[in-house]
Design a binder for these strands. Structure first.
Lengths: 156, 156
DNA sequence: TATTGTTATACTCTATAACTATA
DNA sequence: TATAGTTATAGAGTATAACAATA
């Protein structure tokens, strides 16, 4: 494998990562949201209800952290807290109308981005690109798995 | 363009983004570094010298922020502050031996990742993937440019 | 008068630990 | 005794504003 070609692949992947992320974060900032808070909204889309504990598990974050995220989203009007119907310890979180509308806009923006991305490519080019990315994803997942096993072995 | 194929492209890109970023951040955490601090080290690699003001410009961050990043890196031994030879207002930042060694490890890890990524692909497959990513990068850059112009128009 | 880097202040995301109310 | 969510505390990244030293 020629050296320049090899390093070009990772460079391209990192560039896409940076551009995609920057674009999405700019979009969020325009709506008064942060990535972490949008993640909460995303889990509640379609009128889903979650306890804060469930949100903590799905976000992979501590319950204390969810308190802060929901505090912020409640203060800015995106979500509402409700008492749990049977468990008086638990708090149920749902989207407000503003939250529902915001998620709808985000999904529309994502659909528009999907359209724009493939606009200059043929079906076959897109298929080839998706195939190639699938290979990359498999390789990355394997590497991460290996790292996790090594760390598990270190601890054992 | 078939709908599933279209959404599969963005899904794949987002998956790669998430995996790449997670892998690199885990790598940094293992060395007692954060992404923002590694970015500083990266700008100083190869023995480069920068004033804090130059770092602020290159990082796209406020000077106050650089004070905090350099404070942290200095306390953990990765960089050192020196007086500027001619401008007594300015502070020059350089890597310590630990900083140099850390960057060397990071570059080695990146080279290993490049090798692993292409291990299962032929040259032609890699070339095709890089071509496809190039198209995506062009499209994303165009979109971001458009957004920036719209915002400029909004302000004007 | 302009620039360099600092202190002061504030907001967000994250974590651990201790605690209250409830199960 | 265990669980849900809170307060208390802490560290990191980011920002603006005011300020001292220097150019």
């Amino acid at each position: 494998m020629a050296e320049p070609l090899r390093s070009q692949l990772l460079d391209s992947l990192l560039t896409v990562t940076s551009l995609l992320q920057g674009d999405m974060e700019r979009d969020l900032a325009g709506r008064g949201l942060t990535p972490a808070r949008m993640h909460v909204l995303w889990l509640l889309r379609g009128g889903a209800q979650r306890t804060q504990g469930a949100l903590a598990t799905e976000l992979g974050v501590t319950p204390r952290n969810v308190t802060g995220l929901v505090d912020g989203l409640e203060a800015t009007g995106f979500v509402a807290r409700h008492p749990h119907p049977t468990d008086r310890r638990a708090t149920v979180v749902t989207l407000t109308d503003l939250g529902l509308a915001t998620i709808a806009q985000t999904e529309a923006a994502r659909a528009a981005l999907e359209l724009a991305l493939v606009a200059g490519m043929t079906d076959e080019q897109v298929r080839s690109l998706v195939r190639g990315l699938g290979t990359v994803i498999g390789t990355l997942a394997g590497l991460i798995e290996d790292h996790a096993q090594q760390q598990g072995g270190d601890r054992a």
